[in-house]
Design a protein around this nucleic acid. Sequence first.
DNA 1: ATCGGGACCTGCTTGC
DNA 2: TGCAAGCAGGTCCCGA
Length: 269
Amino acid sequence: MPELPEVETTKEGIAPYLVGKKITQVVVRQPQLRWPIPAEVQELKNVEVFSVLRRAKFILINTAAGQVLLHLGMTGALRILPQGVPPEKHDHVDIWLSSGKMLRYTDPRRFGAVLWAALGEQHAMLAHLGPEPLSEAFTGSYLHSKAASRRQAVKTFIMDNKIVVGVGNIYAQEALFKAGIHPSRAAGRISKARYDKLRQAIVEVLQAALKAGGTTLKDFTKADGQPGYFQQELAVYGKGGQPCTVCGAELKKATHGQRSTVYCGQCQR
DNA sequence: ATCGGGACCTGCTTGC
DNA sequence: TGCAAGCAGGTCCCGA
């Protein structure tokens, strides 16, 4: 489900229900996600939520006691529900709120995570992340300098969280198509001008998806249960074998870092 | 220092 | 119809 636009959409959707409320209890039915859910989270009681932020694909819930970090992995989702709605199979965690509602975490594959950082401390997981793609620190020059002498394919390069966060498999493919760059091209063999273009493409693709409320995939819905509307705008993702919308050539399929890639052999060099 | 591959886990689709 | 293989939004960790 979630790439950065989906995580941002989810964060925006849940924040109004959390900020200023207290967490009254945390109900954990399945503590074994990607990592075990820390005891500090499970024991939260009567703690006020100050803010809900996003860093990379983490949703950060800042409370009077410390920070809860939520990651949705591949298939995670968060919903606001009235307390007491019976859980279904993959509803692993409920965070009860003083408003009478609760935040429910659902994740069939359990690649997601619920983590904890003590007050004033930063979780190790956030320590070595690259810049946010929609921040001023993310520029073509930055990418160009980071790529120097790297032989790695540019697609896996831009999906590396240490380079830039929030670019997942869907938007990496879309951005490379938009920038006209072949996904297999070595990162270190791309000019600064082309990195300027790639940066621009990444920003545009993410912003368009954000505006549309996230990509609708099999099961992505916003916190209010409404689907996102970006899927119809995808140019290459999941479209191998179909004609390129620009030149009509048959879109090709490849694999990078064990993730599938679709691209146009004509438009992308 | 980089890199590619394996691992984690479930469910849906595809093909024999 | 049944069953196994293949594939899916993420990303840490390991060995070469």
